[in-house]
Each structure stands twice: as C-alpha cells, then as structure tokens.
C-alpha cells in the first residue's frame, strides 16, 4: 500500500480466508482500487502440487486484472 501511495502499481495476494481483511484494509486506507489476487486457503502446509495449483490461480487472476485495466 505504501508502494501504491508512492505511485508504483501494486497489488495483494491473499488466500480466500484473508480476503475480507485485505479488502477492509485497502478500503480503509483509501486504496480500495488496488488489485487483490485471491487464492485458495491455506497456502502454508500445502505440498508442492497444491502450491502449483494456487500459482496457476494467481496468474489467471492477474491476467484478468491486466485485461480489465487495458
């Protein structure tokens, strides 16, 4: 968020369980427009296959966000 205030495009990656916290933070700090990439919860404790699946999710979401902002 500090980065975005300084003018650097920035976003957050959060698991779905932490989505409300992340959204609340962004809105409360006046940067509700920052992109939020949501992946399945949890990330910690997952084996490599699970991490890979979440990486695909994240990249798909980023692709959609970039598409929208185009």
């Amino acid at each position: 968020m500090e980065l975005a205030k300084g003018g650097t495009p920035a976003g957050l990656i959060a698991t779905v369980t932490f989505q409300p916290l992340a959204v609340g933070q962004l809105q409360a700090l006046g940067v509700g427009g920052l992109p939020l990439i949501v992946i399945d919860h949890p990330l910690g404790g997952e084996k490599l296959e699970g991490v890979r699946r979440r990486a695909h999710q994240a990249v798909e979401e980023l692709a959609a966000l970039v598409g929208v902002s185009r």
Binding site: E2, L3, T8, P9, A10, G11, L12, I13, G44, L62
Partner: peptide
C-alpha cells in the same frame, strides 16, 4: 526494501495471508 522494489519494478505484488 520498498524503495528498491519501487525503483526496479513495474508492478509489485505483496503476500498477505497464511
């Protein structure tokens, strides 16, 4: 760290969860 990322990157993604 923030200054370095701001200088080097066109987009920064931060982790925020478990």
């Amino acid at each position: 760290i923030l200054a370095e990322l701001a200088k080097a990157c066109d987009l920064v993604l931060a982790g925020s969860a478990d």
